[in-house]
Structure formats: C-alpha cells, structure tokens
Design a protein around this nucleic acid. Structure first.
Length: 490
RNA sequence: GGCCCCAUAGUCUAUCGGUUAGGACGCCACUCUUUCAAGGUGGAGAGACGGGUUCGAUUCCCGUUGGGGCUACCA
C-alpha cells in the first residue's frame, strides 16, 4: 500500500463549494460554503463555486439562482467564473477513457434489473452485496463483440487491494480497507459520469488543493482517492466537517421547520448574525469568543478549531445572536433593511423617511436595542408612523385598569406637559415626577398608562424618549385621546 | 446487516495528562429601573459506561453502549 501522505498546505490554496441545484441553499450547505470561504480568505487563497448539475432531472435554474442569492446575502463571494459540472462532460468522459486505457476500469454489462435481483438475494441471505466482478472476467473478444453489437454497459472502476487512507484535517487518519469498496460505476450506460467521477475530474481541473465538505462524504473519499491515483494526480487535502442536525438529533430536514437560509432572512435575521451563528456550529476560535464580525472570523479561522461531532441547530440562540448584532449595528447600516420592511408594510414611504432622515436614524437606534429581529423592530415602530396604531388589550387591561383614576392622572400629565416651554426629556421628567408627588402615586403609575396612551403597547423605550421622538403635537393628541376614551368608557 | 465517523450540562463550546472542568444560549433568582430588552451579580446544570496506560486521566489505548453517516447506472 502506497503511503498517502497529505499534501503540504499550498501557499495559495484553492477551495470550492459544490452544491447541487436541487433546492434552496440549506443551512448545512451554507455553513460548508462559509468554512471554505473563511479558509480561502484567511489564507489568501481562492474560493470557487461549482454547481453540480449532472442530475438533469432534479437540477433547476431557479435553484441555482437561489444558491447564488443565499450566498450573496450571507456575504460569501467567489473568485472565478462559476463552474457548471454538466459542461465538463467531455472531460469527464475523457478521464474515464484514460481509466479504461490504463486498465483501471472495465466495462460491465450487467443490467440494473439483474443487479437488483442479486442485491435482493444477498439481502435474503443476510449478506452484504458487493458487485462480484463477473464482467471483469469476460474474455476480451467477448467484450469486444458486445461493444460492437452496441450492448449497453457501464464502466466500473476496478478497486485494487490494500487500504486507502488519508489524514483528514479534522478527523486525523481515516482508513478504509479496499475490500469493503465495490467496483463502483464511474460512467453510466448513457455515457454520463457518476458523481465521484465528475467530482474528481472537476477538482483536478479546478486545481483544488483542499476539499472541505460535509461528513456525509467521508465514505466517498476513498473512492475519490483511488480515482486520483489511477488518473495519476496528486491528492488534495481533505477536511470533513460535521453535519448540522435538528433539535431531535437527526439530519436537518424539512420537518425541522426553517432549513433554508432564505427562511431566516424572511424572519428578520441579519446576515452578519446568521454567518456568526453558523460559523460557531462546528467551529470555535478558542477562548470565549462568540459575537464576531466577518473580519474577525476570517482572521481567526483555522481548521484546528473544527469540531468532529455534529451540532444541533438551536434557533433560540440564533435569535439571541441576532439581537446582539442588531444592537451593535449602526442605524445607518440597518436603514435599508428597515426601510424596505416599513415600506412593504405600508407604514411609510422611502421619501417620507428620507425627508426626516435624522429623526428616522434616531428611531432605529432607539428601537434596535430591544429587538431580536428586524420584525420586532418594525413592530415597535408602528406607533411612530400611524396615529391609528392598535392598542394591545393586555396592556390596556393592566395599565388602564382604573379608568377614572387613569384619566385623571393622564389629564394631569397632559396639562403639565403642554405647559412646558420646551419639549425636552429632562424637563418632562421633572414635571411628571412632580405630578406623581403631588398625586401621591409612584411615578410608574403615570408612566405606564402614558406609555399605553402613546404607543398602545406595554413595552417601549424609555417614556421620555418616546415623548421626544413622537414630538409635542402628536404626543399631546394621543394623551388627550386616551383621556377622552377613558372618560367615555368609564 | 456491512463499512466509516462521533461521544464535556437541554443546546453551542473551552480544555491539547495535574483546572474548584471555563464561557455562551436557555432556565431561576437578585440588581438597575417608568415597562421591556440590554447590562450587572449570583444559582441550578456536564466529562455515557467498563477496563487498561500513568504518580495522576475529560484528555492516551481497548471494549461496551448510545448517536450519526454511507451503503444506486442520486449528488
């Protein structure tokens, strides 16, 4: 058995992300892409993107677009033209021909039906099925005769004896006895290559130096290594990163709810938070680093920090992470996103927002601290844009419990506030606290009903910030309206 | 079934033979306080099990158990 020592890490590594365009960009795929990207950016190498569209039946252009969109949203870019695997067909076939010429592969005429029967029989005998190489024992002239007669056949790789092993960057040495690997098909009877063949052919052509992909590919790796060697090519390094599982510990799938990165975008998650969270599933920079910007992650990324065991996707922690990023992001950077949501909900037009730009940015800064998602933020922004904001029944029930008393207090607040020469927080606070003293109630007994009068909600930023942000006129109208409502209702 | 991988709290993780096993999410208190969030303080909560190796194992080795992945003319 030849020693398979890992190739030394090249000065300018080339990595790739190679999704098949059969759905949306999955969080697992996104994370694999992210790790590759971080690696490339950290080492000053190249990040390539290859669309594995050889399964024509399942591949769609829409899905390819979704992958581009998802990656772009996350801030993951790539360095060269996108490679479409299906376009490499001629090269894939040429590589298979090389295999055949070198005697590393042979033609197999067994039909899928025959194979299915033999597989079933083996199953019944409780034996594991492996192709028995019967076609490899066909005399040359018989093979020739069938080929000339146009008998459909596949090309199988002849797996040599020995052991195939590699030093995985995350797992260390992994070995597979070759006897456990069957003579796998490399070319279908229709002349198209099978996955492992296409991957190796492409990775060679793309001069990939590190193959970093999900753990579900470790059992493909010995086959691919065998192919590299039969083709006479140097091996890349391999790194198999753990899978992402759902809360039930199983491979993440549809029934776990949101699994596409686009789903999280729609839930008001920031790309920076998504990327941060994803990076921390299966990777740790060491120490206690958690909330990080992209640049920090690039700087800190190393395959040494890659985890071996699968991680469970915890949406609650994602939301926390998002809240952290939301709080730390300047309003100006949140603006575009928030604006699009406000416009979409009909709360404001872009022109209106632009006309009161400073006020708008201050509002975002005011609300972002309390929000976990941009949806939270927009929800809390409603009363600043609409006079007919809804009243939260729970908040009303709690804060306006005693209608007469509340009306009295709010009327007092109205009188004092309207008498103020300047609409400033410190003056308003002094004035309302004096009112509380005068009425012999805790200040909160005034603030909370006021909050509901101004926003309809039991939760808001500090009441004086709300008053300032709303402005004198709107605030006084709302207080007056509350007083009237309470008196009429009572 | 066969092959491969994995194993620190409910979850994400630190530890690279010697630690009161650290941090984060979540949870529970307390604090700040006009509400909520954020912040601060504190708390409950972990090395699956059994053997070795060693003066000493979470850490190294073996086994068991458990979990996961792969097992197509899918990718």
């Amino acid at each position: 058995m030849a020693d398979i020592s890992p190739a030394p890490a090249p000065a300018a590594p080339r990595v790739r992300f190679a999704p098949s365009p059969t759905g949306f960009l999955h969080v697992g795929g996104a994370r694999t892409a992210l790790f590759n990207w971080l690696y490339a950016r950290h080492h000053g190498g190249a990040m390539l993107l290859r669309i594995e569209d050889t399964d024509r039946a399942r591949s769609t252009a829409e899905s390819t677009r979704a992958i581009f969109e998802g990656l772009t949203w996350l801030g993951i870019d790539w360095d060269e033209d996108v490679v479409y695997q299906a376009q490499g067909l001629a090269r894939h076939q040429a590589d298979v021909r090389t295999l055949l010429e070198r005697g590393a592969a042979y033609r197999c005429f067994c039909t899928q039906e025959e194979l299915a029967v033999r597989r079933a029989e083996a199953e019944q005998r409780r034996e594991s099925f492996r192709y028995d190489r019967r076609c490899d024992r066909l005399p040359d002239d018989e093979v020739q005769r069938r080929v000339e007669a146009g008998v459909p056949h596949v090309i199988r790789f002849r797996v040599p004896g020995g052991v195939t092993a590699w030093d995985d960057l995350v797992h260390g040495r992994i070995e597979f006895p070759n006897q456990d690997i069957e003579d796998f098909v490399v070319l279908r009877s229709d002349g198209t290559p099978i996955y492992n063949m296409a991957v190796v052919s492409d990775d060679i052509a793309m001069r990939i130096t590190l193959v970093m992909r999900g753990d579900d590919h470790v059992s493909n790796t010995p086959k691919q290594i065998l192919l590299y060697r039969a083709l006479g090519h140097e091996l890349p390094q391999f790194a198999h990163v753990p899978m992402i599982h759902g809360t039930d510990g199983r491979k993440l799938s549809k029934r776990h709810g949101a699994t596409a990165v686009g789903d999280y975008r729609e839930q008001g998650i920031l790309p920076a938070a998504m990327v941060n969270f994803l990076a921390l599933l299966g990777w740790s920079p060491g120490g206690d680093r958690e909330v990080m910007a992209l640049g920090e992650m690039i700087e800190l990324f190393s395959t040494d920090g890659l985890q071996k065991k699968p991680a469970i996707f915890d949406p609650t922690k994602l939301e926390w992470m998002n809240g952290q990023h939301l709080s730390r992001t300047p309003a100006a950077e949140l603006e575009a996103l928030v604006t699009s949501e406000l416009v979409q909900q009909g709360l404001a037009t872009a022109e209106e927002l632009a006309a009161q730009h400073d006020w708008y940015l201050a509002l975002i800064d005011l609300l972002k601290v309390r929000a976990r998602t941009t949806h939270d933020l927009v929800r809390h922004a409603v009363p600043y844009f609409r006079a007919d904001f809804p009243y939260d029944p729970d908040a009303v029930a709690k804060a306006w419990k005693d209608a007469d008393r509340t009306a009295h207090l709010l009327a007092g607040a109205r009188d004092r506030l309207s008498a103020l020469p300047e609409w400033r927080a410190d003056a308003m606070e002094a004035s309302l606290r004096a009112l509380a003293d005068q009425e012999g109630v805790a200040a909160g007994k005034i603030f909370q009903p006021l909050r509901v009068a101004l926003t309809g909600m039991g939760v808001s930023p500090g009441i004086f910030e709300v008053l300032e942000t709303l402005g004198r006129d709107r605030a006084l109208v709302r207080i007056e309206r509350a007083v009237r409502t309470l008196r009429e209702g009572g």
